[in-house]
Simulated assay, not measured.
Amino acid sequence: MTDWKRICLLDDIPRLGSRVVRRPGADDIAVFRNADDEVFALHDQCPHKGGPLSQGIVHGRKVTCPLHGWNFNLQDGQAVAPDVGACASFAVKVEGGEVWLAT
């Protein structure tokens, strides 16, 4: 059984942007919203050089790291070829205009 934590309203996340969820004693999570109002959650650190993915550019279902231009699939955190690597992804859902993150 998955426990869900309410993060914010969907409208609190800018389209093509993100919001950072701070977790005491754990790594931050970036929650992204694309142009189609789909929401995704990834570990907020690029595995390449540690850049904050929350500051990256969202396009389609991808985010581009602001430091070195690596692209990551927002659905599963996998780097887009030719880059290799991944960051953790987290379950997220939108219900009634509210964003919920699996804990």
Rank of each mutant, 00 (worst) to 15 (best):
Leu101Phe: 05
Asn34Cys: 04
Arg6Gln: 14
Gly97Pro: 07
Gln45Glu: 15
Pro82Gly: 10
Met1Val: 10
Val94Lys: 07
His43Gln: 13
Pro66Arg: 10
Asn34Arg: 11
His48Lys: 09
Leu74Tyr: 07
Gly51Phe: 02
Val20Gly: 03
Leu67Cys: 11
Leu42Arg: 05
Gly85Cys: 03
Lys5Arg: 15
His68Ala: 04
Trp4Gln: 08
Val92Trp: 05
Glu38Met: 07
Asn71His: 14
Ala41Gln: 07
Lys62Ser: 06
Arg33Leu: 04
Phe72Asn: 03
Arg15His: 10
Cys87Lys: 00
Arg33Tyr: 02
Lys5Asn: 10
Thr64Cys: 14
Leu53Phe: 05
Leu101Ala: 04
Gly25Met: 01
Gly51Asp: 05
Cys8His: 05
Lys5Thr: 12
Ser54Glu: 08
Lys49Trp: 00
Leu42Cys: 09
Val21Pro: 00
Arg61Lys: 15
Ala41Leu: 03
Val21His: 03
Asn34His: 09
Ala102Tyr: 03
Thr2Met: 10
Asn71Ile: 00
Ala81Glu: 13
Leu16Asn: 15
Asp76Tyr: 02
Trp100Thr: 04
Gln75Arg: 15
Asp76Gly: 02
Lys93Asn: 01
Val84Gln: 13
Trp100Lys: 04
Asn73Val: 03
Val31Glu: 04
Pro14Ala: 10
Arg19Leu: 15
Ser18Tyr: 06
Asp44Leu: 01
Ser89Cys: 13
Gln78Ser: 14
Ala88Ile: 07
Pro66Gly: 12
Val99Ser: 04
Gly60Val: 05
Phe90Glu: 01
Val84Arg: 15
Val80Met: 11
Val92Ser: 08
Gly97Tyr: 01
Cys46Ile: 08
Gly60Arg: 09
Thr2Trp: 01
Asp37Lys: 03
Pro82Lys: 14
Cys8Met: 03
His48Trp: 10
Gly17Met: 09
Gln75Asn: 11
Arg15Lys: 15
Cys8Gly: 01
Val99Asn: 02
Leu42Ser: 05
Ser89Thr: 14
Ala91Met: 03
Leu101Ile: 06
Ala41Pro: 05
Val21Met: 11
Ala88Phe: 04
Val80Lys: 08
Pro24Asp: 12
His59Ser: 14
Pro66Val: 12
Asn34Asp: 14
Gln55Trp: 02
Ala79Glu: 05
Ser54Phe: 07
Ile57Cys: 11
Phe32Trp: 06
Ala102Ile: 04
Trp70Phe: 13
Ile29Asn: 05
Gly97Thr: 11
Met1Gly: 14
Asp76Leu: 05
Ala102Trp: 02
Val58Phe: 07
His48Tyr: 09
Asp28Val: 01
Arg15Gln: 13
Ile57Glu: 15
Phe40Pro: 08
Pro82Ser: 09
Ala35His: 13
Pro82Leu: 14
His48Ile: 01
Pro66Ser: 11
Trp100Cys: 03
Ser54Val: 02
Ile57Asn: 00
Glu98Pro: 09
Glu38Arg: 13
Trp4Thr: 06
Val63Glu: 03
Ser89Asp: 10
Gly77Gln: 06
Ala26Ile: 01
Gln75Cys: 13
Ile29Arg: 00
Ile13Leu: 02
